[in-house]
Amino acid sequence: MTKDHSSDGNTPGDQALFSADELNRLYRYGLSLTGERDRAYDLLQTALEKYLRQTQAPASTMRYVRKIMHNQFIDDYRQQRHSLTVELDEQDLLDFDVRTLEQMVIDEQTLEQVWRLLDPLERELMYLWAVEGFTAQEIATELEQPRGSVLSRIHRIRKKLTIAMPLHDVRSMRGGKHES
């Protein structure tokens, strides 16, 4: 699990712009959005081109490039006439947090099934939580969205997990403790 502390505050002139490890992390982030290796690479390449064209050093290079990738992906996705609106349901804004996901156990095969049910923004959230180690608040800050939107999305992910997971796993999930 990684966070961006090592990259925070880097300016383009301080050192090699991105290490191989950082490029791979950004690629994986792109993969969470696109779900396809070629498209993830294209997205990363496009974002880096945009990053190189900017002249102000961002506070966090990794976050900055992720943001470019996110915005570029949304633009491309919308131009392909898909809809990525977040439907906020007040009922969803209950006491859910990423911690409701912490207690879940899953096998690889079931994860693959669930993964196909997730939309790009849900996969992005799962990536930020599981790989980058972000909390719900950090995800909301990263994506510049209200925390409620993030919680709503977590709730929908949980519903999809519930559908795909074997019954005994669902029982263990329900026994889990929710954040209030």
Binding site: Y27, R28, M104, L111, W129, A130
Partner: peptide, 15 residues
């Protein structure tokens, strides 16, 4: 754990 499973899924992927 779900988190571990997702992390491993991504770690397999590289440029």
């Amino acid at each position: 754990p779900l988190r571990e499973c997702i992390a491993q899924r991504f770690e397999k992927e590289s440029l």
